[in-house]
Simulated scan of single mutants.
Amino acid sequence: MSLTANDWLKKIRELPLPEKIKVINVCGGHERAITTAGLRSALPEAIELIPGPGCPVCICPEEDIYMAIQLALHESVILVAFGDMLRVPVNVAKGEIRSLQQAKAAGADIRPIASPLEALHIAQHHPDQAVVFFAAGFETTMAPVAALLVQGIPENLSILLSGRLTWPAVDMLLRTGQATFDGVIAPGHVATVMGAEEWTFIVEKYGLPAAVAGFTPVSLLAALYSVLRQHVEGRLFLDNCYPELVSAHGNKTAHTHLHHVFTVTAAMWRGIGIIADSGFSLREARYDARWRFPDCATNASNRKRAGEMPAGCDCARVVLGQIYPDGCRLYGTACTPRSPVGPCMVSDEGACRIWWSVGIRSTAPTAQPAEITPELSIGRE
């Protein structure tokens, strides 16, 4: 008989836990499931569940969004992007257009999409007009983007790529000593594509417990129990608590497509810096919007405050698990979902947006920002 959520909670409460143990849930979807289900309030006080870097909208480089805005405003293009990206603000002077949503309101042809196939269909229906697909996301999004390119795209379609891998951010935190957690709940959707074994480095390299989880309270609590029990007993391994969809090696077809279309490179994460081995880059320049529109690409990177978070915004510290959303100085005051200042308040995978949407207001003292050390080395140790 399968265990229920209450069964897992009982097993967690029976563990001889230390006075405090912190577990990071990497995935934004996990954070949404944990928060909406109220799991934190059901757990023993010793356990802290920390939101992690699993929101692609939150870490998308500011200069990439700026370039998308400039393309839409000043080039004769149709720009398509996933819906969440339209509301992310960039660093510009007061009165200037600061989001794709504002650029659309100013007359730019910007179209929200939910699937890479929609970008293809728009390009096919407008063969005489350039179409730019602003493709931002993690491995689960990059796999269908790669499949689209493998199948072939029309000459009028190019890609403004802002794809990232999730594991290098966790690796960077652990390698540089910035980690504030004792165990990891690894992302289920990413593991479905890339395989559970991608997360074995947490156990083998850093000696921390880890478990892959799905998105139900049962799967999340099972993974949390595994991490806690590993910590208590000192018997460490990577546990797959999402076997319905996650295998050891992931989706081999997706791996083939990703390797065929992309190379892996060091990449910028907004407000954090360059993280080694964390970005996807197009192998063929002819698909690359940066190659087709080089002036826009150069201008996007050469501005004052390019790549930074907005003044006063602590999104980078939230993403890195260093503070909770309500520890940000702007949370719920200057920054709300209706008028977001930072990207973590935009996406439904952003921790600030998730916490606000379930009614969590300011419960933590205002945190002073700590220095965040960018990862500047290239290549995995």
Results as ranks from 00 to 15, higher is better:
Asp128Ser: 14
Ser115Tyr: 13
Ala33Ser: 04
Pro51Met: 07
His121Gly: 14
Pro112Trp: 06
Glu118Asn: 10
Lys11Arg: 15
Leu15Met: 08
Ile110Asp: 02
Gly54Thr: 02
Ile24Phe: 09
Pro56Phe: 07
Leu71Phe: 06
Gln102Trp: 07
Cys58Asn: 00
Arg98Ala: 14
Ile47Ala: 05
Leu86Tyr: 02
Glu19Lys: 12
Asp109Lys: 15
His30Lys: 05
Thr36Lys: 06
Met85Glu: 10
Lys10Asp: 12
Arg87Gln: 09
Ala119Pro: 03
Asp109Gly: 14
Ile50Glu: 08
Asn91Leu: 09
Asp7Gly: 05
Ala130Tyr: 01
Gly38Thr: 07
Glu75Leu: 04
Ala106Gly: 06
His126Glu: 10
Ala42Ser: 08
Ser76Met: 14
Ala42Cys: 13
Pro44Thr: 04
Glu63Leu: 15
Gly107Gln: 06
Lys22His: 06
Asn91Ile: 00
Gln124Cys: 10
Leu117Asp: 14
Arg40Glu: 03
His125Asn: 15
Ile110Glu: 05
His74Arg: 14
Ala5His: 04
Ser76Trp: 12
Ala103Cys: 04
Ala108Gln: 03
Cys27Lys: 01
Ala106Lys: 08
Leu86His: 08
Leu71Lys: 08
Lys11Glu: 13
Val57Asn: 07
Asp84Met: 13
Asn6Met: 14
Cys55Tyr: 03
Ala119Phe: 00
Tyr66Val: 12
Ile12Phe: 06
Thr35Tyr: 00
Pro53Phe: 11
Ala5Val: 06
Ala114Leu: 15
Asn91Lys: 05
Leu117Cys: 12
Gly29Tyr: 06
Ala93Arg: 14
Asp109Met: 14
Leu117Glu: 14
Asp7Ile: 04
Cys58Gly: 08
Glu75Asn: 05
Pro53Val: 03
Arg32Glu: 02
Glu31Ser: 11
Leu15Trp: 06
Pro18Gln: 04
Leu79Asn: 09
Asp7Ser: 07
Pro44Val: 01
Cys58His: 04
Pro16Ile: 12
Ala68Arg: 09
Asp128Gly: 13
Ala130Trp: 05
Leu43Met: 11
Ala33Glu: 03
Ala123Cys: 09
Pro53Trp: 01
Trp8Phe: 11
Ile78Gly: 13
Lys104Gly: 05
Gly83Gln: 08
Cys27Phe: 04
Glu96Pro: 00
Ala93Thr: 15
Phe82Trp: 13
Leu9Tyr: 11
Asn6Arg: 15
Leu86Met: 12
Glu96Lys: 13
Lys11Ala: 14
Glu63Ser: 15
Glu96Gln: 14
His74Val: 00
Ser115Pro: 02
Asn91His: 10
Lys10Leu: 15
Leu9Trp: 12
Ile21Lys: 03
Leu39Glu: 07
Leu39Arg: 10
Val80Ala: 01
Leu49Phe: 02
Asp128Glu: 13
Lys104Leu: 11
Ala68Asp: 01
